[in-house]
Amino acid sequence: MVYGSEAIHPTNLDYGAPRVRAYDEQGAEASLEDTMDQLDEARDVALLRSAKYQQALRRYHSHRVRGQAFNVGDLVLGLIQSNKDRHKLSLLWEGPYVIAEVLRPGVYKLKTIDGEVFANAWNIE
């Protein structure tokens, strides 16, 4: 019933225990306000630390990722998009496919080994 503080027994109230006599209503309210201010500050500090961590993680990842560019005629594998009838031992990739055309950096037209060109373009990002 009393979260974060010690309970006062009714006998302490009746006989005027030192803890009850030393209680100051205004001091308790001021202490509560100070605690609430510190709580808001702690939340702000945690938010800033989290943002700083996310930035460092993003910078680390961006530094480690290498860009990939393909030329016409390169062989590539395509990620299987559908999860239908799949289990944990299913293959993740299908292909190989041949790069038929480079539409712009990162966007390619693919064709099968037999020469059948797909209608849609594939984005490697």
Rank of each mutant, 00 (worst) to 15 (best):
K111F: 00
D44S: 14
K88G: 03
V76Q: 01
L92C: 09
K111T: 02
S82F: 04
K88E: 10
L13R: 06
E116L: 14
Q55K: 13
L32Q: 03
R49V: 09
K88H: 04
L91V: 10
D40I: 12
A22G: 02
Y60H: 15
V117Q: 05
V20Q: 05
K109D: 04
H87N: 13
P18C: 10
Y3N: 01
H61M: 14
E125Q: 14
E125T: 13
D74I: 05
A22K: 10
R49T: 12
R19P: 00
W122K: 11
Y97T: 07
D24E: 07
N83G: 10
A56L: 13
D24H: 03
H87V: 09
R59W: 02
N83H: 05
A42H: 03
V20L: 04
Q26F: 02
Y60R: 15
A121S: 12
R86E: 01
T112E: 00
P105Y: 00
V102P: 00
L47E: 14
L103F: 04
V76H: 02
P105V: 04
G73M: 03
S82H: 03
G27L: 12
W122V: 15
D14H: 11
L13A: 04
Y15G: 06
A42S: 09
A46M: 08
E41K: 14
S50T: 13
A46K: 07
E6S: 11
G73R: 02
D34P: 00
L13E: 05
N71P: 01
A56P: 01
L91E: 05
P10G: 08
Q68S: 07
D37Q: 11
K52P: 00
V65S: 13
G4S: 06
H63A: 12
L47W: 11
W122Y: 12
S82N: 09
L32N: 10
L92W: 02
G95K: 04
D40A: 13
Y15F: 12
R104F: 07
E125C: 10
D44M: 14
D44R: 15
Y53Q: 15
L47R: 15
H63L: 07
A42T: 09
N83V: 14
I113G: 02
V98P: 00
G27P: 00
G67A: 08
Q54A: 15
A119Y: 11
D85Y: 08
I80M: 10
K109A: 10
A51T: 08
A22E: 12
V65F: 03
R21P: 00
G73T: 06
M36F: 06
G115Y: 08
D37H: 07
D14Y: 05
A7C: 02
H61S: 13
E33P: 00
S62E: 09
P96W: 02
V98E: 02
R66K: 13
L47Q: 15
T112M: 03
